[in-house]
């Protein structure tokens, strides 16, 4: 009797071991396995489709992000140029420093405006006067009580003009016959031009948002 019960116990434990040790599929019938395989294949197909779609989306995003990167790079370069043109950023480059002495106080705003136009004509890209006023497109030269105002800022003599551009062309433009130098000397002043490999234009022109001008729709 005891032997029989022992044998029963042994068999039961052995069977439980066997069942526990087997893989997840031991209890599954063949049909179930095939069904499982098929549903797995279907799921894999669906997942692959999703992956393909996402990969396409990613490619599109990447290429548009790349295109944007290029566009942004160009825009930044243009922005940099525009900040120099509008005088909203400091600029540096080769150029000239012009000093005008005016002992007889005979130099007028018209003389200076003419000089600036000569420098523009010679290709000056950034101009600054007396280290204080940035000369841009809209800079106006006026006079009040015998003093010269540039963009409303009173400038005492001696006047200094720093211009960035080809230093040779710029200095030629100042001292050519009938140019700024001749004119100032005629008025009793003196003009000296100093070429430099690096001229720094530090003063800034602040711009207001345009009130009346809209970009033209193209």
């Amino acid at each position: 009797m005891a032997v029989l019960l022992a044998a029963l116990g042994f068999a039961a434990v052995a069977q439980m071991r066997l069942t526990g040790a087997d893989d997840d599929y031991s209890g599954q019938r063949r049909e179930n396995l095939i069904e499982l395989l098929e549903s797995l294949a279907a799921a894999a197909d669906r997942t692959q489709t999703q992956i393909d779609e996402l990969e396409q989306t990613r490619e599109e995003l990447l290429s548009s992000s790349e295109r944007r990167q290029i566009a942004v790079e160009e825009a930044r370069q243009r922005l940099e140029v525009l900040t120099v043109l509008t005088g909203t950023a400091a600029a540096a480059g080769p150029g000239v420093t012009i000093t005008i002495t005016d002992p007889e106080a005979a130099v007028t705003s018209t003389n200076l405006l003419n000089g600036i136009e000569e420098l523009r004509d010679a290709g000056a890209e950034a101009i600054e006067m007396n280290d204080r006023v940035r000369v841009v497109a809209s800079t106006s030269f006026t006079e009040r009580d015998g003093e010269i105002l540039v963009d409303g800022v009173k400038l005492p003599s001696p006047y200094s003009i720093e211009a960035i551009g080809s230093s040779h062309t710029l200095s030629e433009a100042v001292i050519f016959r009938g140019g700024l130098a001749d004119e100032i000397e005629r008025l009793g002043g003196k003009v000296s031009v100093e070429k430099a490999d690096l001229v720094e234009v530090q003063s800034l022109h602040s711009i207001d948002a345009p009130e009346y001008s809209q970009p033209t729709e193209s």
Partner: peptide
């Protein structure tokens, strides 16, 4: 960036403008 470009472009004169 575009807004900056526009307002600077108007001021610098690179953009055509219309207005009164």
């Amino acid at each position: 960036l575009t807004n900056q470009l526009t307002s600077l472009g108007i001021d610098a004169g690179t953009l055509a403008v219309t207005g009164p």
